[in-house]
Structures are given as structure tokens and as C-alpha cells.
Amino acid sequence: MKLPVFKAPVFKAPAHHTGVTSRVGTWLGITFGLCFVTGLLSHGAQHDWVWPTRPVDLYRVTQGVHVISGVASIPLLLAKLWSVYPKLFERPLVKSVPHALERASIFVLIAASFFELVTGLFNAAQNYPWSFYFPTAHYAVAWIVIGALLVHVAVKIPVVRRTLEPASEERTILSRRAFLRTTALTTGVAVVATAGVTVPWLRKISVLAWRSDGALPVNRTAKAAGIVVPQDWRLKVGARSFSLAELQAMPQTTVDLPIACVEGWSQNATWTGVRVSELVGRGDVRVESLEKDGLYRVTTLPSEFAEDPLTLLALRLNGEELSLDHGFPCRLIAPNRPGVLQTKWVTSLEVL
């Protein structure tokens, strides 16, 4: 009589399971989606797409969400790769043409995702160890990421639905839940540790936050920009010109507006100066800086911003005369504009 042969069940490691992959992938899809949408908004704001002047904190919020969701994506992406890496090296590497296309799309998704997250971190730290122009490359690769992600989701949606069902076996295994909890906790810690650059009440506990010491940060110093203010400096406004004393003698307006930069940091400040609408007529305004070079030496202020009563040619910051690093003798400050477009060291305004 032949005895039955019993085989010991083969258990996968807790992390390397479709249930874990589906859940982490869902979280990652949410953070990537937020990062992509807010990135599009940031790109539009910097390139003068249709962008409102109100609410004044809109860009601050959208860019903050952009950077925070990017930070949250890093531990989630690493956890997702850890959950699937055995499959990435299974043999044979290619089983069929559809399988080859699927693996190629995964490779593109992983490579593009790492490019976005790593270069985004370097940008937040204002460190650029590459020769390409970051905004253009970051924007282009974002479309590659989202396209590859949509293809990946379309291919894997049946698996995701099956593994996310309440009756799925994976939901009952404590070790897998522990991995998911650890992933969620790590993501939360990463967010809290850096979110102070955008969320003021988190600044005291955001130990890894950059530029959150309470002082208004300076991205580009006067020395770095090569600024030399002539003793006979005058602001050109069309055919007219004004000395600093003449600008100070005009009716002054004080507003509370945030500076919000593409690196993710933002901070409120009190600005005092002359309304741009009282200096120029109606229409778009060309704003020129004393800088001799730089991508934002000359910017265009759309008419809706130029005519807004909150848009100032600022002469004072928090009650004090502008320092040279903050744009002396005068700088632009407008509601809901990226910091790179809040031109410092203004030398001329011209209605287009």
C-alpha cells in the first residue's frame, strides 16, 4: 500500500505578497496622483497659465502638498519595491511579448519615479549636481511616470481588486499587517519630519525641515546675483522715473502675504510699499531686475495681478527697510505667486 506524500506548505515572506503589494501600491498611487496634479499647478503658476490672485495662500498650499506628497512617496516606493522584488528577478525574465511589454513598462515606471523623487529632493535642498534644467526635465518625466503608472494599474487592476476584497486571506495575517503598519508609520514620520517648511505649527517638531527657523529665507543672495545698486538708482516706469525717496513719499500700503517657493517652504511676512496699480496703467507688466543674468531677471506680471490692490512694489519688510538680500531698494510682492516670480532688485516696470 502506497502511503500518501504530504508536502509542507510554502509560505511567502510577509512583505512579498500580492496583498501587501496592492495596499502599498494603492497608497503610492494616491501620493503620486497628488504630487502630479499639484506639480501641474505649480508649472502653470510659473509659466503664467490661467492662475488666480485669490486665495492668497493657494500656491502655498498646492506647492506644500506637492513637496509633502513627494516625500511621502519615497518610503512607499521603497516598500512597494521590497514587496515585489522577487518577481523582478524570476526566471524566465521574458515569457511572451505581452509579458515583455509589461516588464518594460515597470522598468520605465521605476526609473522615472526614482528620477522624480531624487531630483525633487535635490531641488528642495537647492543642490543641482547635473547639467540639465530641472523644471523642464522634472515636468517632462512627470508625464512619463503618470503614463507608465496608468498602464501598470490597468494591467494589475484585476489582481488589486481580488487582493483587496475583505474576505481575502491576506487580511488575516498579522505579520503582513505589521509590515503595512510599519510602512504607514515610516511614511508618517517622513512627512512630519519635513512638513514644517510648509505647515507652521509643525516647525518645532519637523527635525529634518529645511528653512524653518522663523526668519524669512533667502534663496538667492545679492552677492550670488552680482547685485550692485547705483547711488543714483531710479525706478523706470515707462517714460517716467522715481528715486527711492520719491517712492517712499507716495501713499504706502501694508499687506500680509506669504512667500512660497518651489522648494516647498513658505512663510508669511508683512510688506509695505506702493501699489503697482498706482504706478502703471492697465495691462500686463514687464518687470526687470538689476540682475545681469538669471532665468528670472525679467518676468511678466499678468494684468490681473498688476491691478490687484495687494500687489506691491515693496520697500519695507516686517517694518524695516528691505535688506539687500531681500531686494533693496524695492521688490515685487503679489498674492498667490511663486517665489521665483516675486522679483527682487526691481529697476523698471513697463506696461506691455
Rank of each mutant, 00 (worst) to 15 (best):
G33I: 01
G33C: 12
L34I: 14
L34N: 09
L34W: 08
C35V: 05
F36T: 04
V37Q: 09
V37M: 15
T38V: 04
G39D: 04
L40N: 10
L40K: 08
L40D: 02
L40F: 04
L41M: 14
G44W: 01
Q46N: 15
H47E: 12
D48K: 05
W49A: 12
V50P: 03
V50W: 15
V50L: 15
V50M: 13
W51G: 00
P52R: 08
P52C: 08
R54T: 13
P55F: 04
P55Y: 03
V56N: 03
D57I: 11
L58N: 01
L58T: 01
Y59R: 03
Y59T: 00
V61E: 03
V61Y: 11
T62V: 15
T62I: 11
T62C: 01
T62W: 00
Q63G: 04
Q63E: 09
G64P: 00
G64E: 04
H66D: 04
H66M: 05
V67C: 01
V67T: 14
V67K: 06
I68N: 04
I68V: 15
I68W: 02
S69A: 15
S69F: 06
S69I: 02
S69C: 13
G70K: 11
G70Q: 09
A72R: 05
A72P: 13
P75A: 12
L76T: 10
L78F: 15
A79H: 11
L81F: 09
L81I: 15
Y85V: 08
P86W: 10
P86Y: 09
L88T: 07
F89P: 00
F89E: 02
F89R: 14
R91K: 14
R91N: 10
P92K: 10
P92C: 14
L93I: 08
K95I: 02
K95P: 00
S96V: 07
S96R: 07
S96K: 07
S96M: 12
V97Q: 07
V97Y: 07
